[in-house]
Design a protein around this nucleic acid. Structure first.
Lengths: 340, 340
DNA sequence: GTGAAAGCGCTAACAC
DNA sequence: GTGTTAGCGCTTTCAC
């Protein structure tokens, strides 16, 4: 273990005070050109690197933002999070800020994980993802003075900064598209309804049916869990109904792909016997020609950080609440129904 | 901004010295039962939360481990990383340790990102993923005294702690399986060959052919980039050859799925006209009945952390180098070749 | 049992 | 320009 090189080391080495060394190294104040050069040279020679913890303590700023991932153990493979983290990370890197990640199942302990980050002053700001109904995390954070941004809206009727995709408009457009193709029996595999986005998406589906005078059938709505398995269950349920749907919309691509798989298994031709659509447009989706709604997750990650960065620096936001319209990507998994 | 509650606050509030408050709160030393209770009560009432930066500075320990993700901009959606981060995060959470993530393209700046974490003393240990040929990161880290573990081996001929999957054995087994089915013309879509694992996997393919007296054809090997697009290019190349392969092995599932897609597009029946296999067993793979090699990425993440945690605490490792054998999962994308 | 004093490595206020 | 002093919030000797 090589002994740490600190300002003190350089101070002793050069004969200048610690203060002066600090000034020279950070570029502040007026330090004579000669001194600066000497100190810089010494720093380089000794291999000085500022201790970020000490700096953090002094500056009361960590140059770190936090993200607590709601994990549920293994098979947490929704590519969604990879993409989001990449976006967040790349943007933060450009500011010289790091990302502190902690994983935590959405249970009563969850808030403690937030407390640890917030009250332990580990981060300058926080990103909340996958907002939920009556989201405790948002309630909690609003009570603190820590800047945060959320990926997702809330039903708390409070004001905070977020980005969200307009799932309602997206699914509405998709449903209308299916209706225009001639579909009347459209099944919907929802995400867990405690997630905010699940409700918006479901609402988009409902609205489209209502607008087109198609009666809502409760049995056409299945609450899935966003996983491959959940999609399979939903498919089995919907395709087992006596009045089998001619089209199925899933709340994310992973479930939609499962539907395709199950449908093919029981001999249905996708895009003909059964239309299938998803949400997200993750990479394997285009491979399987899945009609879906694209959300620019990577860019959302970047955008979240640029908002948060402004909040941390007490700048005003041009748009404190952003709603992005997802793009409908039509591929071959949807088509006209065979039986009208 | 509520003023921070510190030990000093509690000290003033209770009349005890800061030292005694600290002792009572951390459970150290002998503090009379009465004092402890008073202090604990005050801490609770005032809403005290230890400042982790200050603690870090004093203890010279951050309770944080670092991970620098080699990103390449958007579409970084290999579910691989979600799963790995989930495993790492869940394990670290059980130790009360956080994960500091930074993203960085694998370019000359990459080492600076490592330096910032290491020499800025931001982390107690580091996880290196996707090791490369003559990996600069490992060279660098070996020169520091910071504990680290790698996901992947190295060709540097040096000793360090790692976990890796035995890609050579895995692909070897898979290739033998295809050969036993009767395939003689087997194409291989590799990962970028600067990645260590790509070489092992390619070697497994080569060895199997050699052992079975099948001549190696250079044109049967295509170097892909692990993305959907790369897989498509590889498929186009291999299936455009005059002596078209009857089977294609891809170095990861995402590329294998692209092969399936392209093959179907040009009218080939998967598992019959063309056998396709991948590596990883990510979620959508079972949906599409892809024969593949499963690596337990989530558990690898956990294992990496348990090794690292021991290193940080200067405990000995039972197994400083772990090589896991991937499981061959046979599904319907592979079968006997039509033409012998 | 308890408190005073020192120090982790850094920055900032104030002199000169 | 430069050095002295103080302090960020905490833990850890070392006395008593």
């Amino acid at each position: 273990m090589t002994p740490q090189v600190t300002l003190k080391t350089i101070s002793k080495f050069t004969g200048f005070s610690v203060t002066q060394v600090s000034r020279a190294l950070t570029g502040y104040s007026d330090v004579s050109e000669e001194t600066r050069e000497k100190i810089l040279a010494a720093a380089k020679e000794l291999g000085y690197y500022p201790n970020s913890t000490a700096r953090q303590l002094q500056k009361q700023r960590t140059d770190t933002v936090g993200l607590i991932l709601p994990t549920h153990g293994p098979r947490f493979s929704d590519p969604y999070f990879s993409e989001l983290i990449a976006g967040i990370g790349d943007e933060l890197t450009s500011y010289g800020i790091d990302l502190l990640i902690s994983t935590q199942a959405p249970n009563p302990d969850e808030i403690s994980a937030y407390r640890r980050m917030v009250e332990g002053k580990r981060v300058d700001g926080l990103i909340v993802v996958r907002t939920r109904n009556q989201d405790e995390r948002i309630k909690y954070l609003l009570g603190t003075s820590l800047p945060f941004v959320a990926f997702g809206r809330s039903d708390l009727g409070v004001d905070f900064n977020y980005i969200d995709e307009d799932g309602e408009a997206g699914i509405n457009q998709l449903t209308e598209y299916l209706i225009n193709l001639g579909h009347r029996k459209i099944g919907f595999i929802s995400a867990p309804l405690n997630l905010m986005f699940a409700n918006y998406r479901l609402q988009g589906y409902r609205n489209a049916l209502i607008k087109n005078n198609i009666p809502l059938k409760q049995e056409y709505i299945f609450e899935g869990d966003l996983t491959r398995k959940g999609g399979g269950k939903g498919a089995k349920w919907l395709l087992g109904l006596s009045e089998r749907p001619t089209a199925i919309i899933a709340s994310n691509d992973l479930m939609a792909l499962s539907v395709i798989s199950y449908a093919q298994e029981i001999g249905l031709s996708i895009g003909k016997d059964l239309s299938v659509a998803g949400f997200d447009d993750v990479p394997p989706s285009d491979i399987f020609s899945l009609t879906t709604l694209r959300q620019p997750i990577y860019n959302i990650g970047r955008l979240l950080c640029s908002m948060l960065f402004k909040l941390i620096n007490k700048e005003d936001l041009d748009e404190p609440q952003i709603l992005l319209k997802p793009d409908l990507i039509i591929r071959n998994s949807t088509g006209k129904p065979l039986t009208q």
